Amino acid sequence: MSGTEEKSRSPWVILALVIVALIGGLGGWLLGTRQQPGDKAAIEEIVRNYILEHPEILPQAMERLQAREDGKQVASAGNALTAPFPGAVLGNPNGSVTLVEFTDYACGYCRASVPEVEALIAANPDLKVVIRELPILSPASADAARWSLAAAEQGKFEAFHKAMFAAGRPAADTIQAAAARAGLDLDLARKVIAEPRVEAEIKQNLDFARQLRIDGTPSWVIGKQLMAGAVGQKVLQEAIDAAKAAPKE
């Protein structure tokens, strides 16, 4: 799920859509205000010249269009996106604001985001962080993800989550070390891992990622905003504040 080619082309696709929207919108306005419809080519020339004279509008328009498209994708995912695997939650499980994080235990940027998420939780008592395991970087990532869900079953998700990132890249020995450090009942965990619902959870997360066009970790969803990469605590806090201020639907 690299999505490299699609990702590299997406800004140009967005730019084309923006220009088409600008031409369509401004052209429609001009036609609507004229007594005579005028020449379509002349209208397009007016729009072209306006864009050339005011190129600063393009990044703003691209950003707004991308945000609109992201909002549609998040809305289409429905409430299931913010419904966690039982216990796979950080912060306030009954919080009024939900931040969804797609993460992989082999992801260095995810590891670097751990203290930032902890700081956000400390600063926002009403914040619920739903962790969606997205093991896309290595085969051992999937093993670590399964163990994390087994830890959630035992009410020790946070302990395993921190221990696994602290242990280094996922491997048989680091996973077992993290499980021991988190105090898991290892036999019970192995039974849970073998249950179909664990595999179903990981499959659902992969499906969400495809639907939202997520091809890397960490990725974040809050409200209708979708953010990719290690965006930092400040950006996440701004998104949390915006979600708090948004009218309730």
Rank of each mutant, 00 (worst) to 15 (best):
A88I: 02
A88D: 00
F102A: 07
L149Q: 14
E45M: 12
Y50M: 09
A41L: 15
I23L: 07
E153A: 15
D39S: 13
A123Q: 15
A80L: 10
Q36L: 06
R132K: 15
G95I: 01
E53Q: 15
I23E: 14
W147P: 11
A150L: 11
G87V: 04
C110F: 10
S141I: 05
A83M: 02
L120F: 11
T33R: 14
A61N: 02
V18M: 02
C107Y: 01
C107K: 09
L134S: 12
G32E: 09
P59Y: 00
Q154V: 12
L30I: 15
L81Q: 04
L149W: 13
Q66D: 02
L15S: 03
E56L: 05
K40L: 13
A122E: 15
V89C: 02
Q60L: 07
G28Y: 00
I43D: 03
R48L: 06
Q35W: 05
I19A: 08
R48C: 00
G78W: 07
T82I: 08
G25T: 07
Y109I: 07
C107T: 12
C107Q: 10
E45Q: 14
G38P: 02
A122N: 10
T103D: 10
S138M: 08
V74G: 08
A16N: 05
V130C: 12
H54G: 06
E116P: 04
C107F: 08
L90K: 07
L127N: 12
A21G: 15
Q73Y: 08
L149G: 10
F85C: 08
I51M: 06
I43R: 00
N92K: 04
E133A: 14
D104T: 07
A41D: 14
I121N: 12
R34L: 11
N79M: 05
P86A: 03
A145F: 04
W29T: 15
E118L: 14
I19L: 14
P59H: 00
L31G: 15
Q154G: 13
G91E: 09
E63D: 13
A61E: 00
D70Q: 05
P55R: 10
A21K: 07
A150E: 11
A106H: 14
G32K: 11
V100R: 03
L52V: 05
G28E: 06
G24H: 01
R64L: 06
